[in-house]
Design a protein around this nucleic acid. Structure first.
Length: 470
RNA sequence: GGCGCGGUGGCAGAAUGGUGAUGCAACGGACUGCAAAUCCGUGAAUCCGGGUUCGAUUCCCGGCCGUGCCUCCA
C-alpha cells in the first residue's frame, strides 16, 4: 500500500517517504481566533483531519500539530471594536472553534500550540536570523531581508523581481528591499506587547509557525499543510525563516494545500455576505452530513458549496446508517464502536487505495457505497451479512463516518426545532398501527401525512414501523 | 502584467492512451393496503480546432469560457 501525496513544492504527486517510518510528523496552519470558523476553514481542517487519520492507520506513531494563532492584528481590532478584552476574545473563540470542529467530527490534533506561549522561541529565532545576516532591525521592527536568501520563492514559484514589481502596498521606508517582511513589529499605545531586543512589540504573522514547528516537530519534518491561499506569502515566508535560521535545505518535505470553496458559484467573501459559519450550518445539518458534503469533492479541486449538497450527503448517510438500524440483530453497532488499524484485515483494499491516492475521497466514498450495496444485497447467511456490515463500518470509521448510534442519527433534529418529541411520535405510530389493523387505511394515511408534515418520515418494515426525522 | 486551476450524462463527481465509475434525479418491474425502504432492470456525458498515435476524453499546441492568487484571507 503506497501513499502518494501531491506536493506543492514539486507540483506533482509523489510516493510519501517519511523521515522516520516509526514517527510521522504533520503540521497544519490553524485558525486565528477572532471570529467563528467558516465553511472554508471547515474544508481545510476536514481534509487534513482525514490525512491525519490515514497516516495514523498506516504508521505506528503520528504527531499531528495544528496551531492556534492568538496574537494578531485582527484580534486587536476586534477587541478595540467591542471592548472585550483580548484574552477573553481569544479564549471564547478558541472554545467555540473546538466545539465546532468536535461537532463536525474532527479529531483533536495531538498538539495545539498557541502563538502567545512561544514568544520566546520566536524572539530567539529572529535573533538567530539577524546574527546570520538574513534579518535586520529598523525603527522598532525586525525584518527578514528577502534578497539575502538566494532561492526565495521556490514554493510559490515567484521571482523576487516579480514580487517587487507586483507589490500593491506602499513600501515602508525602513525596508531595505520592498519584498522584505516583518518578523517583529512594535506595539502601539494600548496594544499587547512583549519585551524584545527591538523594543516592546509582537511577532509578525509568519514567525509563529516557524518557531512552533521547530519546537514541536523539529527543524525538518514530514508534511506541512494549509489552505491554498497560504502558499504565498505565509508558507513562502515560513520556509525562508526556518531554512535560514536552521541552515536546512527544506523546512518540510511535503507541502499540501486544500482548494478553495465557492458558495453557489460565487467566491465566498464577507463583503458579499455569502459565507456560512460552521456553527450555523451545524445548527441546520448533522456534522457528519456537512463533512461528507465537504469530502465529496477532491480536496484540491474547487468545491462549490450548496445546502443541496449537504442534503444529498445526509440522504447518503441515511442509507448507510439504515443498514445498521435494520440489521441491529446481526451486527452489534455499539460493540464495534472502536474499529481501528487492528481491523485492517477487514478494510477493503480498493477503499484504502483510493485514500492513499492523494486522498481521493470521491473514489473512497464510492467504495463505501459499493460495500453498502453489497451488504444490502447479502442474503446467503447472517454470518456473511455481519461480515459485509463490518467491512462497511471499518471503512466508514477510518474516514470518521458512522460514528454514532443509528437510532441517534435518525432522531437528530436541527437546533431550536420545536417538532414533536420522541414520545409523541411513538404514540402517533401506535395509533396508526391500530388503524391499519382495523383496515382503516384512510386514518392510517392521515396520521402518516400528519407526521410527514412535521418532518417525521415513517417506514413500515417487516419488523414493524420505524421513523426518522428528515 | 506575472503565477496557477478548471471545462465529463439533468445535477454532483472520479478515472482512463483502447468497452467513461459512483451517487442523486428520471423511467420500467418486484415488494407494499398505498407509500417509504430494499431488490432487479433501462436510457443518458468527455468545450472547440489542430498535432503525436493503429487508436486521444486522457499527452502536446492554440482558441473560447469560467475561476483563484500576486504581502488581511483556510
Amino acid at each position: 500500500m503506497t501513499l502518494s501525496l501531491y506536493n506543492t513544492l514539486l507540483r506533482t504527486k509523489e510516493a510519501f517517504a517519511p523521515i522516520d517510518r516509526t514517527h510521522v510528523k504533520l503540521y497544519v496552519c490553524g485558525p486565528t481566533v477572532y471570529d467563528y470558523a467558516h465553511i472554508g476553514n471547515a474544508r481545510t481542517f476536514s481534509a487534513f483531519d482525514l490525512l491525519a487519520r490515514l497516516l495514523k492507520h498506516l504508521y505506528p506513531k503520528v504527531t499531528y500539530a495544528r496551531n492556534i494563532t492568538d496574537v494578531d492584528d485582527k484580534i486587536i481590532e476586534r477587541s478595540n471594536q467591542s471592548g472585550e478584552p483580548i484574552d477573553s476574545v481569544t479564549a471564547r473563540t478558541t472554545a467555540q472553534f473546538h466545539a465546532d470542529m468536535d461537532d463536525l467530527g474532527l479529531l483533536r490534533p495531538d498538539i495545539e500550540p498557541r502563538a502567545t506561549r512561544h514568544i520566546g522561541d520566536m524572539i530567539a529565532m529572529i535573533e538567530a536570523l539577524i546574527a546570520k545576516g538574513f534579518a535586520y532591525a529598523a525603527e522598532g521592527h525586525a525584518l527578514f531581508n528577502v534578497p539575502s536568501m538566494s532561492d526565495y520563492g521556490k514554493l510559490s514559484r515567484r521571482s523576487q523581481d516579480e514580487l517587487i514589481a507586483g507589490a500593491r502596498v506602499e513600501v515602508a521606508p525602513y525596508k531595505k528591499s520592498p519584498a522584505d517582511f516583518v518578523l517583529w513589529k512594535p506595539a502601539k499605545e494600548g496594544e499587547p506587547g512583549w519585551d524584545s531586543p527591538w523594543g516592546k512589540g509582537r511577532p509578525g504573522w509568519h514567525i509563529e509557525c516557524s518557531a512552533m514547528t521547530a519546537a514541536h516537530l523539529g527543524q525538518v519534518f514530514d508534511i506541512h499543510g494549509g489552505g491554498l491561499d497560504l502558499i504565498f506569502p505565509h508558507h513562502e515566508n515560513e520556509i525562508a525563516q526556518s531554512r535560514c535560521a536552521h541552515g536546512t535545505q527544506v523546512m518540510a518535505n511535503v507541502w499540501m494545500h486544500s482548494g478553495f470553496l465557492t458558495i453557489a458559484g460565487d467566491k465566498m467573501s464577507k463583503s458579499l455576505g455569502n459565507f456560512y459559519t460552521v456553527r450555523e450550518l451545524l445548527d441546520e445539518f448533522p456534522g457528519e452530513a456537512l463533512r461528507l458534503a465537504i469530502l465529496s469533492a477532491h480536496y484540491r479541486q474547487p468545491l462549490d458549496f450548496t445546502k443541496d449538497k449537504v442534503e444529498l450527503s445526509k440522504k447518503k448517510l441515511d442509507r448507510w446508517y439504515r443498514l445498521f438500524k435494520e440489521n441491529s440483530g446481526v451486527f452489534n453497532f455499539a460493540n464495534s464502536a472502536v474499529l481501528d488499524k487492528h481491523d485492517g484485515k477487514d478494510l477493503d483494499p480498493d477503499f484504502l487505495n483510493a485514500l492513499c491516492d492523494d486522498l481521493n475521497t470521491p473514489e473512497a466514498i464510492k467504495e463505501i457505497d459499493r460495500l453498502v450495496n453489497e451488504a444490502y444485497a447479502e442474503n446467503s447467511s447472517t454470518t456473511a451479512l455481519a461480515l459485509a456490515m463490518r467491512k462497511v463500518k471499518v471503512a466508514a470509521n477510518l474516514m470518521g463516518f458512522l460514528t454514532q448510534e443509528p437510532e441517534a442519527w435518525f432522531k437528530w433534529q436541527p437546533a431550536g426545532a420545536s417538532g414533536l418529541d420522541d414520545a409523541a411520535v411513538e404514540q402517533a405510530i401506535a395509533d396508526r398501527l391500530a388503524a391499519r389493523k382495523a383496515k382503516n387505511f384512510a386514518e392510517a394515511d392521515r396520521i402518516r401525512n400528519d407526521l410527514a408534515a412535521q418532518g417525521i418520515i415513517l417506514e413500515d418494515g417487516p419488523k414493524g414501523t420505524t421513523w426518522k426525522r428528515g
